[in-house]
Write a protein that binds this DNA or RNA. Structure first.
Lengths: 327, 327
DNA sequence: ATCTTGTCAGCATTCGCTTGCATTTCCAGT
DNA sequence: ACTGGAAATGCAAGCGAATGCTGACAAGAT
């Protein structure tokens, strides 16, 4: 900047103001400086800028992987979410600082938020980290979580109405005449737990509480997959499956195909998320869509409002049943 | 830091050194300072730190989406890669600055590299941005690209040997007795182009150059999918498909299932990547595995070596044929 | 010719931290 | 008690940019 100032025959302050487009600088001077900067490829150092302006111009995006290490890398859900978040942040000229955290201590969030590297954080999925999230929400202003709304929570969430999603899925299977239902997925992350809860509620409505099963596993590993196979062998009567996510549903489709069961004739399958691949499975998957683009925009919007000091309320997006050939 | 210094009865410099763990500070003093910092939840501001140390402690990871906007959000490949990159960078205490770029001008890379926010960049996929990559490689030291090695390139790449991968896939299909082969995927990104090239080479070896087809589309959109259907209708003899990626292969499986063709009996299918879902399709997908974890480690390793001033050579990883039930 | 007012630009300080060098403290050796 | 050298600490100068305040200058008012 020094050099640029000399080249332009002005002071450093003038260069700074010119580059910032301040109108207090004479238009001609300003243009000359800007042109000179362009010519010499000068870009102000953003780190210095951020220090001076006491900001980071970046939002941290964190995926805690407390419960199931192998879920995330495989899940197109996260990629999609991440893509939309990146877009929304880029629009506002903010950087996206990505962390994947395998929580060992309870400091991962505070460390990020206190480091000065970010102006706020978006956490994708509550995992088993409710305590950490609650604590961080007390101490920091700008924090939004993608996940389930839970009564009495301090941290602000955005997410689909999982109970309702589960309910819709359950009713749909029942409407299709299925009576021996199975919930497939680990219910310990709150989102999944609520999906299960809604599903069970649908079963209760239909008086099916006794015949409904739950298999609390995630299906991407070979071990979990064979566990599911064994379960199907032991319970041949199952005629409807609601999977906690599309990825789990896809594995279920394979397991069914392998034992020669037709979908949806013998067993109907419903997933959750409506990832892009869901339309391309064999057969295409009936699923509960979450509008991730809207969700991502919401998340970003809310962090910014929090940065500006606003207090935000949790948001629940309406889930939508997408009927395809698997049910 | 000022306040902490007063609390501890020492100077700011001593606090700084103590927190940095410098042994020149008396062990007792050091521990006292560290303990005090912990107690009051003090964390040095990393932005200031970075400014002073003229570093960013972050690597930019960029996905240019020049050719096919809808490929990336859907592709588990990227999520997996990103996950491994995040892990490798976290290990070294570096941040990962994520950008998704839809290249409009040719400055996206320079802007990132000159901004001072990152110490280096990893670009995932060359897309149609070869010119930009070449230019940036001239001007900057720390830049590594995941993609195809191309003769005479200035930018350093890490990637699987795509030609060889395509060759292996082609030979495998031929070995299975398939004679009417189809390459499915857009060959304009260099990686895909090389896969096609290797595939065609395998066909040439077997004297099949005349009967081999190529359908240059990506299959996640409904439009592309129906284009593929039409092609299959028009060319009923196809008995082997090599898809440019697993995601494309999955859609192909669906298309085949819909027209009642058995896999691999009527048509064998081979994918590329070995994403986690590939083992869980119906039927499980034969594919060419790229070791993404090794690739990600390599990428990270090489940026750091470049930051240290080393000059690195491109690396090609050996692709591996994973035979499953689709062939 | 003097005073007022408004425009522009520059000086110097600041953001929070690190570090070369100067200075003080400590202690063994005499 | 004195001294020399090592060990420990403090001082102050930055890192690269933003900005409140002051000063210079010109044009218009009196």
């Amino acid at each position: 900047m020094q050099e640029l100032a000399e080249l332009a025959g002005v002071s450093v302050s003038t260069v700074s103001r010119a580059l910032a487009g301040k109108t207090i600088i004479n238009a001609k001077t300003r243009e000359r400086v800007v042109e000179l900067a362009r010519l010499h490829g000068f870009k102000p150092n953003q780190v210095a800028q951020n220090l001076r302006l006491r900001r980071a111009q970046a939002i941290g995006v964190v995926m805690p992987m407390g419960h199931e290490v192998d879920q995330h890398p495989s899940d197109p859900f996260f990629m999609t979410m991440l893509g939309y978040l990146a877009d929304a942040l880029t629009e506002r000229n903010f950087d996206l600082l990505l962390s994947r955290v395998i929580p060992s201590d309870g400091n991962w969030l505070d460390d990020l938020l206190d480091s000065g590297r970010v102006d706020g954080a978006i956490v994708i999925g509550q995992s088993d980290q409710m305590a950490v999230l609650e604590a961080a929400a007390e101490r920091h202003r700008a924090l939004v979580v993608w996940g389930a709304r839970i009564a009495g929570q301090k941290h602000v969430t955005v997410g689909s109405d999982n109970v309702r999603g589960g309910l819709i899925a359950g009713r749909h299977l029942i409407e299709r005449g299925k009576r021996n239902l199975l919930f497939l997925g680990n219910p310990s992350p709150p989102e999944f737990g609520q999906r299960q809860q809604g599903f069970l509620q649908a079963c209760a409505e239909a008086g099916l509480s006794d015949s409904v099963h739950s298999l609390p596993i995630h299906l991407t590993s070979e071990a979990a997959y064979s566990a599911a196979r064994e379960f199907l062998d032991a319970n041949p009567g199952i005629d409807g499956i609601f999977a906690a996510s599309d990825v789990v549903a896809m594995s279920a489709l394979r397991a069914l195909a392998e034992r020669g069961l037709s979908v949806p004739g013998d067993v109907a399958v419903v997933g959750y998320d409506d990832i892009i691949l869901a339309a391309h499975t064999t057969p295409p998957l009936t699923t509960i869509r979450q509008d991730l683009q809207a969700g991502a925009r919401m998340l970003v919007d809310m962090v910014f409002r929090q940065i500006d000091g606003e207090i935000c309320d949790p948001v629940q997006l309406e889930p939508e049943l997408i009927i395809r050939a698997s049910s």
